[in-house]
Computed example of a mutant assay.
Amino acid sequence: MTLKGALTWISTGGGGLLIGAVLGLLMTVGFEDPLKKRLQRIRRRSRRLRPRRRTPNVAEFEFGGVTSPCMIVAGDGTEAIREELVHLVVSDEPLELPAELAAWRSEIATEEQAKRAAGAPHHWNGDCFAVEELVEERTDRDEEVEIFLQLRRTDYYSFLASQHLDRRFRDGTTPRSRWIDPVGHRRAPAFMSLSIGTSVLVITTDHRVLICQRGPNVGSRPLHWGVSADEGLSAKLDSPSGLPPRLHATARRGLCEELSLEDHEYRLALLGFTIDTERHQWDSVFVAYAHDLSSEQLDRRLQRSAKDRALEIESWEFIPFDVRSVLRRLTGGLPARAWTPVAPVALYLALVHEYGRWRVERLARSQSNRLRRSS
């Protein structure tokens, strides 16, 4: 084969796919396998050094008189978790649902396919990731937070089936009573942890935070008010070559698709990981500081729409980014708003990151006392 012919073959679909597959395999062996071995060493060491502590079955977050069915799993907002210290390791072992959940998944698949055939709004069954385990460590030199997330591949219909936590089986038990209550949310099995996403708060240059109302047709908590942008990890979009996804990249994708924000327009910081204890959904909380955009400029951009804005966002507003203003918005207003469980937690972590824990919690206690006196 001539040099010109070889270059032509490489540039064609077949040649490119073959080379891509080989490079993907080399990168997997070179990067993911050492991470898996390191995670196994950390897990063995942790079991020797620390006793297993049971996570409370019912966990509610409280902030300035606001309560939310959510728990913080890692991170406290004071310091950002550096991108290079977040490792996502994807297991090759397939995830299987118990027989009862598999039957519910089949029901959901039939219903969604019927909606699609009728031309009605429906959910498509994309590939996603389940959380098998989160391990939090400290780096040797600087003792920074380092996160290892062990993931398994799953699909969206399995996630929808796992959301019926209080639906009863024939024996009267529920998924919550069988698989979450005995061990707590932190140690629930992977087939119940079929969701891991990113929730991002955007802070503009005039020190206002964007909060958004979710669209009426989203799969989880439609029309609830929440963060600026949220995005679930997708195997197709975030791991197209088969390599493990990256949380920061998923958060950036969400900001681009929902708010039309480009990577160079903000500074992104990961503040923590949470679990929605009402529906057992894992999440990661980010804050994005705009470099040049004011709230007025971002509002005009949103009015011009974004790729997924019409699907994901029903309405939005900007509020001053300070403790009192945030708490007034969470607790006040008529009619009362329904908030996503992660929204108060994300706002708390972002405020702590900006002002420090002591000041935020002092003002929050003052707000709680005022609410108690007025009730």
Rank of each mutant, 00 (worst) to 15 (best):
T28W: 12
A290M: 14
D322N: 11
Y348N: 05
L25R: 14
L223V: 01
I10E: 14
E258Y: 03
N57L: 08
R44Y: 02
G126V: 10
R138W: 04
H291E: 13
V285L: 12
E62C: 13
Y157R: 08
P121T: 04
S368K: 09
T110V: 02
R372N: 08
W124F: 03
E79C: 09
D127F: 03
D181E: 12
E231P: 01
L97M: 13
L255N: 07
T204F: 02
T2C: 03
A251C: 07
K36I: 10
E62W: 12
S228C: 02
P245E: 11
S294L: 03
L26D: 06
S315C: 06
S294M: 08
V352L: 06
P98H: 00
D308R: 15
L49T: 14
E112Q: 15
L298P: 00
A306R: 00
L247V: 07
C256G: 12
I203A: 06
R170P: 11
L302W: 07
L23A: 08
V200W: 01
L201C: 04
M71H: 00
V131M: 05
P189F: 04
N217E: 12
A310R: 12
P222A: 15
H164V: 05
G13N: 06
S284W: 02
F31R: 12
V131T: 02
R47N: 07
R153F: 01
R48N: 13
T154Y: 03
R105A: 04
R357H: 15
A6C: 11
R373T: 15
V200G: 01
H224N: 14
L210Q: 14
L35C: 04
L49Y: 09
D299T: 12
V200H: 01
S199C: 11
G16E: 05
R176M: 15
V86Q: 05
L255Q: 07
A109S: 15
R43I: 10
L26H: 09
H224G: 12
G219P: 00
A338T: 02
G356P: 06
G65Y: 09
Y157P: 10
G20W: 04
A74K: 10
I42A: 10
L270V: 15
T174H: 02
D171H: 08
T250I: 03
R44V: 03
L160F: 09
V342P: 01
R301F: 06
S234Q: 09
